[in-house]
């Protein structure tokens, strides 16, 4: 398998990106890489060019640039060229840690949507602290701010395929993020989505789930609109970080008893840290496009780059995208009917 990597995406690019690519290359003998970026900056960083091809690009899309304008104006950027390599069939997947909006635009407009899928969704994997598995997926966490009921209905299928193929969760429990667990909760959009999902028998739909139960195993696939999903994700991250900082500050400012207690609990704190560190699951995947397009965190270091490439390895090997394509091809007529029904609601 061949992966197109934007060497210039991220706060520590290209150094950490190149390091991570080399780590992944050494770990996965069946992986090859196309590394996009200015050759004078990228080439000196590559220690060993085995299974790594450098593709020179002149431009770089910066973090603050307006996404659609940037991909239109900077046709010779590492991000656009990497996306084009996937579109042209020269690579099987695309990874970047750069401008999220531009990456979503490149995924949507250059790699292109799977036929029959209205909107691709940004999908993230999070730790499950209690519950049947140790992780779950949530989508959409920010690709589409404005969503229709039919979009969320399709996210449920894409999320279920991802949970099954990549996380190994069979018959994953699909929940709809809402402001209460009862079926009649939520605004017009969420009521309509609940109705559509409840009527489907291919999915293991368990109903509405609340944000406070997300990390406690509420569902294996959490379906949400991009606006709510992004807010819920950031709120969860922020709360966890604030709690950890509060504990840290209390220990630093506390007396000898607090410090001794912290010393005795050192292993426990490390375990919690490992459990909550979701960078080990890789990056956020844009599902619904013709090949895996993955966004890793802007602050990714080499280890996260390696982990994310491991996640891509699983996605390509398990043919996640192919399975989604097959489902939507074989259910094209049913999808059209449901789309019409959703529109009439």
């Amino acid at each position: 398998m061949k992966i197109a990597v934007d060497a210039m995406g991220g706060d520590y690019a290209p150094t950490e990106v190149v390091k991570g690519v080399e780590m992944a290359r050494d770990l996965h003998p069946d992986m090859e890489f196309l590394l996009f970026g200015p050759k004078d900056q990228v080439e000196p960083l590559v220690a060993n060019t085995e299974r790594i091809t450098l593709v020179h690009t002149e431009q770089v899309i910066e973090m603050g640039e307006e996404p659609v304008k940037a991909i239109k104006a900077k046709k010779d950027s590492s991000m656009v060229k990497a996306a084009e390599a996937v579109h042209n069939g020269e690579a099987d997947a695309f990874l970047s840690g750069g401008n999220t909006g531009a990456l979503l635009a490149a995924g949507l407009f250059i790699v292109g949507r799977i036929k029959g899928i209205e909107r691709p969704a940004l999908t993230t994997t999070l730790p499950m602290v209690e519950g049947p598995n140790d992780k779950f997926v949530m989508l959409d966490v920010g690709a589409n701010a404005d969503s229709r009921a039919f979009h969320l209905y399709q996210y449920a299928f894409m999320g279920a395929y991802y949970a099954d193929a990549v996380l190994g969760i069979q018959k994953p429990r699909v929940g709809l993020l809402n402001n209460g667990t009862e079926a009649d909760k939520g605004d017009k959009l969420h009521k309509a989505v609940h109705e559509l999902l409840a009527a489907n028998h291919d999915l293991n739909f368990i109903g509405n789930v609340e944000s406070r139960e997300l990390l406690n195993g509420a569902a294996d696939v959490v379906v949400t609109d991009g606006f709510t999903g992004n807010a819920a994700l950031k709120s969860t991250e922020g709360t966890a970080l604030t709690m950890l900082n509060l504990i840290k500050r209390s220990i630093i400012n506390g007396g000898l008893k607090d410090k001794l207690g912290a010393y005795l609990l050192k292993d426990t704190f490390n375990d919690i840290n490992t459990k909550l560190d979701y960078s080990k699951y890789g990056g956020a995947v844009l599902i619904g496009v013709k090949a895996p397009v993955v966004k890793m965190h802007g602050s990714s270091k080499a280890t996260t780059v390696r982990n994310t490439l491991g996640q891509i390895h699983t996605m390509v090997k398990s043919n996640t995208v192919g399975k989604i394509v097959d489902y939507f091809n074989t259910h094209a007529d049913a999808m059209k009917a449901i789309k019409q029904e959703a529109k009439n609601n």
Binding site: K72, L108, R119, N144, D146, K343
Partner: peptide, 16 residues
């Protein structure tokens, strides 16, 4: 066609 802004951007890029 019930096109929203994303559909329309996609169409314009395809035209280009």
């Amino acid at each position: 066609l019930d096109a929203d802004s994303i559909d329309f951007v996609e169409f314009v890029l395809n035209l280009e």
